[in-house]
Design a protein around this nucleic acid. Sequence first.
DNA 1: AGTCATAAATGACCAAGGTCATTTTTTAGT
DNA 2: ACTAAAAAATGACCTTGGTCATTTATGACT
Lengths: 200, 200
Amino acid sequence: MTREEKKKKIKADITRNAIALFKEKGFDQVTVEEIALRSDIAKGTFFNYFSKKEHVLLHMADSYLPLMGQIFGRHRTGPVRARIECILSDLLDLYLQYADLLRITLVESIRASLAAGDEETNISRLRSAFSAFLEDAQTAGEIRTRANADDCAALLVGLLFQTLILYSSRLDAPEMRRMLVRQLDLAWEGIADATVEKNL
Amino acid sequence: MTREEKKKKIKADITRNAIALFKEKGFDQVTVEEIALRSDIAKGTFFNYFSKKEHVLLHMADSYLPLMGQIFGRHRTGPVRARIECILSDLLDLYLQYADLLRITLVESIRASLAAGDEETNISRLRSAFSAFLEDAQTAGEIRTRANADDCAALLVGLLFQTLILYSSRLDAPEMRRMLVRQLDLAWEGIADATVEKNL
DNA sequence: AGTCATAAATGACCAAGGTCATTTTTTAGT
DNA sequence: ACTAAAAAATGACCTTGGTCATTTATGACT
């Protein structure tokens, strides 16, 4: 095993053990020493792999990337609007599966994005995934041609986040899904009253 | 001075001193002991008023509430769409004025909203403010009647946050304003291609 | 195999957030 | 004014995230 491979493996080990502990006891109740112990390393070594305890969460989110790709790939047929609804719904389900953990992960992802320069972040990758999806849809003519796919993507991520922010304390899955659909409807049809719009 | 008033005063003092220090040196570079010292209280006393260091930020955000009300009250004439644009732009300016501090405040507000049950949060108040504004606009007939004002408000807050998240590392004010306008245009007119929509 | 340079692991140590038993202050009732 | 009870202040103490000088492992080159 080469040096690089070994590092990858240890980082993956730490992440796996840390996440398992977080799921068991909650993020704040797990100490770095505990993670290190279970990963057969010293506490100091942990910080050779992650500069902050929270960064484990970001790395975990990275490892969910393929799953995200899968969600976007899963819905390929039918009208774009319906497919977006399915994608949003699947992302919501994913979130709800480990809401306690992903809640903090979401916060950390936002923090990272707010601090990051031009580097990629979890959130920018989510936007990109939507953007790529929408560009395809745009060539199919189901989306306003004047609209920019990146902007549409940002709008969709924004409404997803608002839904999570508003409801994730209650974790009322059906209500969250309804809100998601209503928000998507709004974003899709527009806020403006069409009759008034036409008169301008 | 009654007991309640005294507590209010001390809490306000702590907040003022803490924020001043945060602006001087940055949140992480300020210790609770330092805040306590400057506020003429003991370190332990600080935690009688704020259970976490971060909670000072939330309380500061609360105190900005009147200013927020002012922003919403300032734009009362002209078409709704243009007024929303002005409000969003003003909120952006407010954010940019102390971006370093408000960045962490935003993160903490999101964290609080994700954890909060049904209590009010900074973010829920922002949504409510938009919602009230939009309800007025709705009676004026400039907004889809089928649309719910709360949903529109959530969509607007969502697009504001996405703009902050995407650009606040670079702090490119003009670019942020442009993105805000593009997002609002999308939300206003809808993502869907109108010609396709009609055919459905 | 032996030597050296570089990468990685380590754990003693430090700083600072947060807790809590104890002390001090305030209020209310007599 | 005196007393008892409730509220608030305090700072010693603990925990834990994070640092860093030192030690140990690794791999390249002769």
